[in-house]
């Protein structure tokens, strides 16, 4: 986890974006020191509601830069994920895929890499291909790295942060003893068709930058449509 925050820190530096305007919205608790280290405002919301919370923030103050860290993949918040991508809400989403919830003992998440360790209670379900879901719903930037691809991750973050629209970076970060295994079992394939990057047993994990494109963001579309219809009577949303 620390590695991701570090990469985020360096990514912000490299992208040259203003930390004071940056808000980090999460759905799991981070150590309070993260706030001091990053110099951002941190909002820890309910499980799964981080993206919706960030949507409200963005629409109320379009100057804010919103970084959403979702910890438990797209289980509870899958719907908000899909619809924020569809609307192309200007959010930078980091999905930390640790193949299980950090805080509760052993259990499945949609991204579970099945049968790494067999217990009477391990994954029986097929994992969700999050990059594909993001792309097909309209995300403008989709990448995946493991936490050990440190430089790549920083570059990806620096690249994605200034872009307008819904950006997703999936970071694979299971418990430390497994991280090495994943790192070694990954291959970089930039621009790979997201339909083929599903995480499956006995296959290498595909990492890299899969999607980079431009689409009108929600706020732009909103402004444009209302200008068109209302002309000068329309008042744009601004920060108070």
């Amino acid at each position: 986890m620390d590695k991701i925050i570090e990469a985020f820190h360096d990514g912000i530096n490299k992208s040259g974006r203003d930390r004071e305007k940056m808000c980090m919205v999460t759905d799991i608790a981070y150590d309070p020191e993260v706030v001091d280290y990053l110099g951002v405002d941190l909002f820890h919301t309910n499980r799964g509601r981080a993206i919706a919370f960030a949507t409200g923030m963005k629409l109320s103050n379009p100057n804010l830069i919103l970084a959403v860290f979702i910890g438990d993949m797209a289980t509870l918040g899958g719907n908000h994920f899909v619809h924020a991508a569809r609307r192309n809400m200007d959010l930078f989403v980091v999905c930390v895929n640790d193949f299980r919830y950090r805080k509760v003992a052993a259990q499945e998440t949609p991204g579970d890499f099945s049968r790494l360790e067999f217990s009477s209670y391990c994954s029986i379900e097929q994992p969700l291909n999050l990059p594909h879901l993001a792309r097909s719903n309209g995300a403008v930037y989709v990448a995946r790295w493991t936490a050990l691809h440190h430089e790549d991750l920083i570059n990806s973050m620096a690249e994605a942060l200034p872009q307008a629209g819904f950006k997703l970076i999936e970071v694979i970060s299971p418990k430390p003893e497994l991280l090495e295994f994943f790192y070694l079992n990954s291959e970089i394939k930039h621009g790979e068709d997201t339909a083929k990057v599903g995480i499956e047993e006995d296959k290498k994990i595909v990492v890299g930058k899969f999607v980079e494109r431009e689409r009108e963001t929600f706020i732009d579309a909103y402004n444009k449509q209302h200008y068109k219809v209302l002309g000068d009577k329309f008042i744009k949303i601004a920060a108070e």
């Binding site: 909002f43 409200g56 923030m57 963005k58 109320s60 804010l64 920060a239």
Partner: peptide, 9 residues
């Protein structure tokens, strides 16, 4: 959830 976000923004 988005109302809460808007309020803090």
């Amino acid at each position: 959830a988005s109302v809460l976000g808007a309020s803090w923004a």
